[in-house]
């Protein structure tokens, strides 16, 4: 027999899994961006995930990628038998919800949106941008910590591994950079140089300044988009009484799933209680525009 504590535990586990899913365009977790609206579980190991995006017009391909990634992330939990994704208030919500439920490819689910370049190519482009953004953050943190260009371009995997970076933010960037290096096999050995191009070419000392200039453009672009998306999401779903959102956040009750301070109220609606009704009263966002 399940109890509420176990339910909360399981909902938290799903939040934690979804925190690993990023918006490909922004390279930030969907949970931190406030996209996940509601998670509910039932006795049979089914998980309902409702999510929404900053606008009705958000690109169909990215919406589909995120939906599919979330489904897979939740399914990785041993007790999960089924995942029901529901995208709300979107121009092709029905097609995406149906496609993900049936395990269709993007091309099958939304043929008219998928000419030319495949979704995989698109994913690859944005993986590269994520790599570049993380790399820049680590290099700038190293510069702040007093490393010169030679030390940075010489740095190998075991060396970077040992480096302690001051702020929590810098440490997070380092961890995420190491993740993507490992994922792509870009630094295979302890002695492999860690600052390489996406094609795996080590960056030389004299190339570093120009390389950083290029990375800077990628970062400014992504941060700008992120601010825009957060602002639009907030404007779209903000309730009449903005003070209520602040109060909900101040009361505590963060979802606790992603570890971010996004101010999202904890949602533990159970499907047998009528999830939709439960979610509407909790639809209060307090995403800071200046996060």
């Amino acid at each position: 027999m399940r109890n509420n504590q176990q339910d909360d535990q399981r909902v938290s586990e799903v939040w934690a899994r979804l925190a690993l899913v990023t918006d490909p365009e922004l390279d930030e977790p969907v949970t931190e961006l406030g996209f996940v609206e509601r998670i509910a579980i039932d006795d049979a190991g089914a998980v309902d995930i409702d999510f929404r995006l900053p606008s009705f017009w958000c690109a169909a391909n990215f919406a589909f990628l995120m939906a599919d990634d979330m489904r897979r992330a939740a399914l990785a939990l041993p007790w999960v038998r089924q995942v029901r994704l529901r995208l709300e208030d979107h121009m092709v919500a029905d097609e995406i919800n149906r496609g993900v439920a049936l395990g269709l490819s993007f091309q099958e689910a939304l043929r008219e949106f998928a000419p030319g370049e495949s979704l995989e190519e698109l994913r690859e482009t944005f993986r590269r941008k994520a790599f570049q953004r993380r790399q820049e953050a680590v290099i700038l943190a190293l510069k702040d910590a007093g490393y010169d260009d030679q030390a940075i371009t010489d740095m190998d995997l075991k060396w970077l591994d040992r480096v302690t970076l001051g702020s929590a933010d810098a440490a997070r960037h380092k961890r995420r950079y190491l993740e993507i290096l490992a994922e792509r096999g870009l630094a295979a050995h302890a002695e492999s140089r860690v600052f390489v191009t996406w094609a795996g070419q080590p960056i030389e000392r004299l190339e570093l300044a120009a390389h950083l200039r290029k990375l800077r453009g990628v970062r400014i672009n992504m941060e700008f988009n992120s601010a825009l998306c957060r602002g639009l999401l907030d404007a779209r779903y903000r309730q009449g009484d903005a003070g209520a959102g602040q109060a909900a956040a101040a009361d505590g009750g963060h979802c606790g799933g992603c570890g971010a301070s996004c101010g999202k109220p904890r949602v533990t609606a159970r499907s047998e209680q009528g999830g939709v009704a439960a979610s509407s009263v909790e639809r209060i966002e307090t995403l800071p525009l200046d996060a």
């Binding site: 169909a60 998928a114 000419p115 370049e117």
Partner: peptide, 10 residues
């Protein structure tokens, strides 16, 4: 620009 108009894949 940003997603204002319904967009094709990219």
């Amino acid at each position: 620009g940003p997603t204002i108009i319904p967009l094709d894949k990219d």
